[in-house]
């Protein structure tokens, strides 16, 4: 059945488009008219002000701010009340189990899903996933999705007039090994424009979806490539207001993982939040 799934993934791009056409149209066009949109320099000033205020407060946030107006879509979509403290209980203290029944090993290579080779720089992205106590997250699901080398997604709502690559879908899945390691072969995605403000461009990135050993560690994030000139201009990356915290989203070029006449290696390690189950056991042991 795993192979069946892989076969499904190798459907041609036009059929995927037909399926995606059934998705709802966006409420606003992906690239609305520029009238009324803020300029990049206005966005830059907003970001600067928030980050300066936060630096002055002495409170270093290590996560993205939910309330971050320079990312316009967040205005109506962030909670305004404090998150409520909850001690995880029952099902929250474990995570869903995924395994060979769920994931085909071939899904970790995004360059072999079609008849031909995708266009772009072939790369490997690999690293380790650990929890907040440094313990490897073993045999757990990792999912990625990304634009092609031209900055175009296989998605109905992506209106960017860049070419679709018939040999690249941009979706991968894998399971970590017993040391918490993962590895994907793909092509380097391109930057792409979006409608947040005038002349807004996302730095090249790969979306990552991660599970830990308990449900409280569930997270989705984005991985960036080193030295991208768009970093400072991007409200989504800058919603992580602390520079050291932002660096944790940037992979490093790793020549030891590059392969002779074949691909370039990037390493990106991921830390999930601390788990609770073991800690409670330890506390129980002390009693």
């Amino acid at each position: 059945m795993a192979l069946t799934h892989h076969d499904e993934r190798t459907t041609d791009v036009s059929r995927q488009h037909a399926e995606l056409a059934e998705l709802a149209e966006p409420a606003e066009p992906a690239q609305p008219p520029t009238a009324g949109l803020a300029s990049q320099s206005a966005i830059d000033r907003e970001i600067e002000r928030i980050q300066a205020d936060e630096a002055a407060s002495g409170l270093t946030r290590t996560q993205s701010r939910l309330d971050f107006a320079p990312y316009r879509s967040s205005l109506l979509r962030h909670p305004t009340k404090d998150l409520h403290h909850a001690d995880p209980e029952g099902v929250e203290l474990v995570a869903p189990v995924f395994g060979e029944r769920d994931v085909d090993p071939l899904e970790a290579d995004l360059t072999i899903q079609h008849d031909g080779e995708p266009i772009g720089e072939r790369i490997r992205i690999s690293g380790r996933i650990v929890d907040g106590d440094g313990r490897p997250v073993r045999r757990q699901l990792v999912e990625i999705w990304q634009a092609n080398a031209a900055g175009r997604y296989i998605h109905k709502r992506d209106q960017h007039p860049a070419p679709i690559d018939p040999n690249f879908t941009g979706v991968g899945r894998t399971l970590t090994d017993d040391l918490g390691r993962y590895s994907f072969v793909t092509i380097k995605p391109g930057p792409y424009p979006w409608g947040n403000h005038r002349n807004a461009w996302r730095p090249a990135h790969v979306h990552f979806s991660l599970f830990g050993t308990e449900f409280t560690q569930r997270m989705i994030t984005q991985m960036y490539f080193p030295s991208d000139p768009l970093f400072a201009l991007d409200p989504i990356l800058q919603s992580v207001t602390d520079p050291a915290a932002r660096d944790r989203l940037v992979a490093r070029y790793d020549h030891d993982r590059s392969e002779h006449e074949w691909l370039l290696g990037y390493t990106w390690d991921i830390v999930l939040t601390g788990s609770h189950a073991t800690r409670m056991e330890q506390e129980g042991d002390d009693v």
Binding site: S64, V130, G132, K156, H207, Q222, A245, R248
Partner: peptide, 27 residues
């Protein structure tokens, strides 16, 4: 220790980010 969000002896978690608009064909 003056940074209340960071707990000594614990690794700092990687930041989460938005799922974005283009996840439908992936997740």
């Amino acid at each position: 220790p003056t940074r209340p969000y960071a707990v000594p002896g614990v690794l700092v978690p990687t930041p989460g980010q938005t799922i974005g608009p283009f996840y439908h064909y992936a997740l």
